[in-house]
Design a protein around this nucleic acid. Structure first.
Lengths: 83, 83
DNA sequence: TGAAATTTGTGCGTATGTATT
DNA sequence: GAATACATACGCACAAATTTC
């Protein structure tokens, strides 16, 4: 998916929506690793900060859990701090 | 207040804490205008993005309400969309 | 009408720190 | 120690919304 800079929705929200869709569709299941910031910025063709903001949106929504130095994962309903 | 770059708490959280304290103390009452991003970055000696993040923290906490082109205000309990 | 000033919103690029593997 | 991944910060530029003149 490529971002549309002319769309009403800003790029970081477009990416967030795409990731949200991939989670809702089951492509990214609970516990699965979400594409890294670096991967996101490269594949969507956006800056690092923009990629981080997209992930931040999902974090705020509780859809994903971020662990520094490890990665970002689709949240599991059972527990939030499982290892 | 000046930020401490050697402290455990990152600058943007230090500023957020300071603003939160000013609200809790009554210095900034409900409906009052919160210092603008530009004012914050100048007085605290931090970058614009960092200042925005500090305000964003309070926004996420529901302590303040941001209106583009107008300003940021301490949230009133009565209503969220009053003019 | 509209231009200017103010303020928040979004984005780019870069650098360094911290945590995990 | 090396590689990977997230965390924080700086600086800059332009867009969008609001107010004021």
């Amino acid at each position: 998916m490529e971002v549309d800079y002319d769309a009403e929705l800003p790029p970081y929200l477009q990416v967030a929506a795409d990731l949200r869709r991939r989670i809702a569709s089951g492509e990214l299941r609970p516990g699965a690793r979400v594409p890294s910031i670096t991967y996101i910025m490269e594949t969507y063709g956006i800056a690092r900060n923009t990629a981080r903001r997209a992930v931040q949106v999902l974090t705020d929504e509780g859809l994903v859990v971020v662990r520094q130095g490890w990665g970002t994962f689709v949240r599991s309903d059972e527990a939030d701090d499982e290892s």
